[in-house]
Design a protein around this nucleic acid. Structure first.
Lengths: 221, 221
DNA sequence: AAAATATTTTAGTTTAGTCTAAAAAAATAA
DNA sequence: TTATTTTTTTAGACTAAACTAAAATATTTT
């Protein structure tokens, strides 16, 4: 149905679309896929012909309903595989992306159905990102960036914004994971840094880190 | 390192080599890969340049040590994935080939190492075929075709020769699996058919079927 | 050993996906 | 509104992997 390259374009455009709201530009796609704008133009033509996206020249592209379905299914597979790698094969959450990047292209609806059941129908991947269902729907959670929390607010870490390897290792060194409970003990105005409580330890968190952690706020303060 | 097409060539040549002993001809490869001899010529040149096989023009090809390693590793991955699909995801043994055909190309030594451990280091796949180790070595078993057995000999089914879907389903309908114990009750000379005992049932087995089942003979007759 | 047949290779195309360099179109600045 | 800059597209070329048709080389048969 779709080639490897086509699938990667669709997946990337899907991500760019949720991040950028407006039409996704040729240059943006090129940057995201580490390729050249001229290559993007060609592929966009092909995908438009396949009715998975609309292309308003010089105005950017947007996925059609069909395109969204295809893209979300690839993301579904990617995230289910990540759960498998971490939960069943004991991979570290910062090691799974590259492998899932390959596994997401395996074509077998039955495989994914069974994998989903095998993993007990997870809603989120190891980084806290939602796993779309067969129709592309995702469970939305009320989540804020740690940087938006005020002093004395409590919450649970539910995700990371950018799951780069060094960032994940930084968290790991401090035994901070998805599900870890935190409390904001203090916040500095001039640099946005924070002191947070994790279990019975206190950590200094820079603004950059605080902007990369998603928190579900606990109401009982 | 190797493209998808290259991997498929190497895997097929490996299989053809074990089946045919002498050098593998261009036409044979073409037939096995469902392609044209001229395409094979091109690819063989490429693979010879990569030092994974030797090509004596008009005399056929043979894998080098390096080529054998690469090929056996793909087969290793294919068979480990088949075990996973059957043992963990409860696929039927006649449903797994196509999916494993895709999964065998996933590149990650660590993934295979962990999968091997997760599956408890299996030596054989669901069809009874041996799983090569990291160095390409396989556990050989003393096995004969059912058709070679004599009256009153007993044994255990350890493999199937051709694992076509209809054949596997034929076995399944009679609850005949790898590990099933059998005894030859009678053998007809004129058509090679047999009557075999399986548990407390008796089955009529045609010559064609008997030539497709590998048996490990039990010494205690 | 020559003729016939089978096998393999060469030569030239095709498609998917990429690239560079240049042209065209749009957006922004003067 | 004209000029400059940015963005996008076109044109032409490249590689991998396949194909068809024809040529070359082996093998077999007579």
């Amino acid at each position: 149905m779709f080639t490897l390259a086509e699938e990667n374009y669709l997946k990337n455009i899907y991500h760019l679309q949720t991040e950028n709201s407006e039409g996704v530009s040729t240059n943006l796609i090129a940057e995201s896929l580490q390729t050249k704008p001229s290559s993007v133009t060609d592929m966009v033509k092909k995908l438009a012909a396949k009715k998975v996206l609309l292309h308003k020249p010089y105005k950017g592209v947007s996925l059609t309903e069909k395109g969204r379905k295809v893209a979300s299914n690839i993301i579904r597979k990617h995230r289910l595989w990540e759960v498998f790698l971490v939960e069943k094969l004991n991979f570290h959450w910062d090691e799974v992306h590259e492998i899932a990047e390959q596994l997401e292209h395996i074509q077998s609806d039955e495989l994914i159905k069974r994998m989903d059941a095998f993993l007990d129908f997870p809603d989120f991947d190891p980084h806290g990102d939602p796993i779309p269902d067969e129709n592309g729907n995702i469970k939305v959670t009320e989540k804020k960036l740690l940087s938006e929390l005020k002093k004395n607010q409590r919450g649970v870490i539910v995700g990371v914004k950018e799951s780069g390897s060094d960032f994940l290792q930084f968290l790991d060194k401090r035994k901070i994971n998805i599900g870890t409970k935190i409390k904001v003990l203090g916040k500095e105005f001039f640099d946005g840094s924070m002191i947070i409580q994790v279990r019975n330890e206190q950590f200094f968190i820079s603004k950059k880190i605080a902007k990369n952690l998603f928190i579900q706020i606990s109401e009982h303060v």
